[in-house]
Design a binder for these strands. Structure first.
Lengths: 224, 224
DNA sequence: CGGTTGTTTGAACTGATTCAATCTGTGTGG
DNA sequence: CCACACAGATTGAATCAGTTCAAACAACCG
C-alpha cells in the first residue's frame, strides 16, 4: 500500500479482523492469470484481495474491457451487478472469500467498517470516472501514459523513479481500451521520446512531470 | 421514475423527508444547460435531483466527457473526488442542496437511508462500468444504440415504443466518447436501417430487440 | 425578421485496427 | 547444456472508423 493510504485498506483495520473472526471465510491462493469468477456467476461472496492484483473485466466479442482493478487491501463487494464481471488475478494473488449476506449484516453493525467501505466505494467510483475520461477523450498515448502514472502511484506511492510493471501489453490494452499492438507502439514512442526506459518489465521514469502532463494525470482522485 | 425502481429513489423515502426536516437546505431551479457547479469547486454540498436530469462532466482540452447522469430522485454525494467534475442541468431541473457534513452525520444515524444510498452508489458504479465497456470496446454505432437503450429504459421503464430524447447530439457525443458529427451520422444510419425513426426530438423504436442486440444492451445493471 | 442553437452533409485526413510474420525471453524435458 | 515449446513483444503494410474543418440547413424564439 502506498504511504498515506493505509487508512483505506481493509487489511490494517482492526474492525475487519474482528469481522473475519465472527464469520466463516476461506483463503485462496491464485496463480497468475487464474480466473476466480467467470462473468455471469452469482455474486454471493465478498472478495478481499489479501495480496496481489485482481482485475474485474467484461468480455465483449473477441476482446475484453477491464473495468476495475483491486490491489491488496481492497474488496469486491457483492453488488447485484458485479455478476456481470469476471474476476481474474493479474499476478499471483491471495484472496479472502466470505459469504455475502453474513458479511453485509456484520458490516452494518460497525460504523468503522461502514466508513471504510464507503471510502473505498467512493474512491473506486472516482477511479472509474477517470478511466471513463481516459477511454472517452484521450488519445492512445495519453491513455497509456495515464495508466502508467496511475499504476506507479498506486504501487509506489512516494517514489516515481521506477516501477516493476506487472501487466502484459494485452492487459494494458484491455484497461485503456485499445489493442495490444497499439500499446506496444505507444510504449516504444514514449521510450523514443525519452520519457521512460524499459528493461524487461522494469520501467524507469525519466521525466515524471512531463509524463503526467501528456497524460493529464493529477493524482488527487486516488487519495480518496 | 421507472416502474419498479421507486425503491431506489430518495424522493419517495420517508426517511429522506425526515432528514430534510432536520437540516437546513435550499431548493434551486435550474434552466436547461445551466451549470450548477464548475469543475474544481469544493464539493461541500450534497445535491439531490428533485426533477430533471443532471450531468457530471470533466472538461478535457476542447472537449468534454460526461461521466455520469443523475435523474430525479438521485443524489450527487460529496465524495472528496467529485470536485473534479462539473455539474450541469441537461433539461430544466430542480435540485435540493444541503451541507455535506450535517448530511453525512444524519445519514449515518439512519439505517434505512444508508441502505438507500449504498444501493444508489452500487447502481451508479454498475452504470459507470457499463459506460466504460461502451467507450472502451464498442464501435460508434453500438455506443449510440446503447445510450438510446439505456436512456429509454431509465425514462420509460415499461414501454420502449418511443421516447422524448432530451439530449443534443453534442451531449450524446460527450457521453459516448465521440464527436457530435459522428453521433449524427450514426443516428441517420440507425434510421436508414429502420431501427428507429425520428420526428424532432421524439424517437420511435421500430425494432427494440434488434437495437438491444447491436448495442449488446442488457438492462440488469440498471435494476440495482 | 434576425439571431441563436442545433442538425445535417461533404471531403480530406489520420489515428488506430487488423492481419500476419518475426523476434525474444523463459521455462522444461532430454 | 541444448532443443523445443510457449507466451509475449515487436514490426510492417493495408485498411478503415472516426475526426476535423467548413459550409449549409432547419427549427425556434423574442
Amino acid at each position: 500500500m502506498s504511504p498515506g493510504l493505509e487508512y483505506l485498506s481493509l487489511l490494517g483495520s482492526n474492525a475487519f479482523a474482528d469481522l473475519l473472526d465472527q464469520m466463516p471465510h476461506r483463503v485462496l491462493k491464485l496463480d497468475r492469470r487464474r480466473i476466480l469468477r467467470e462473468p455471469g456467476s452469482p455474486p454471493d461472496e465478498v472478495i478481499l484481495a489479501k495480496a496481489g492484483i485482481l482485475s474485474m473485466f467484461q468480455a465483449h466479442g473477441s476482446g475484453r474491457q477491464t473495468v476495475a482493478l483491486r490491489y491488496a487491501g481492497e474488496a469486491i463487494l457483492p453488488g447485484s451487478d458485479s455478476a456481470r464481471y469476471g474476476v481474474q488475478a493479474i499476478v499471483p494473488s491471495e484472496v479472502i472469500l466470505a459469504e455475502a449476506g453474513a458479511f453485509c449484516q456484520l458490516v452494518d453493525g460497525s460504523s468503522e467498517m461502514r466508513r471504510l467501505l464507503i471510502r473505498q466505494m467512493q474512491r473506486n467510483e472516482a477511479i472509474c470516472y477517470e478511466w471513463l475520461v481516459n477511454c472517452g477523450r484521450r488519445d492512445a498515448t495519453a491513455r497509456v501514459a495515464h495508466f502508467l502514472c496511475e499504476t506507479a502511484f498506486r504501487l509506489g506511492g512516494g517514489t516515481k523513479a521506477r516501477m516493476l510493471n506487472r501487466f502484459t501489453q494485452q492487459q494494458m490494452g484491455e484497461i485503456t481500451g485499445q489493442t495490444s499492438v497499439n500499446v506496444n507502439r505507444v510504449l516504444a514512442e514514449l521510450e523514443r521520446q525519452n520519457l521512460i526506459t524499459r528493461k524487461g518489465r522494469e520501467i524507469e521514469f525519466r521525466d515524471w512531470s512531463e509524463l503526467c502532463r501528456i497524460a493529464s494525470f493529477r493524482p488527487d482522485y486516488l487519495r480518496a
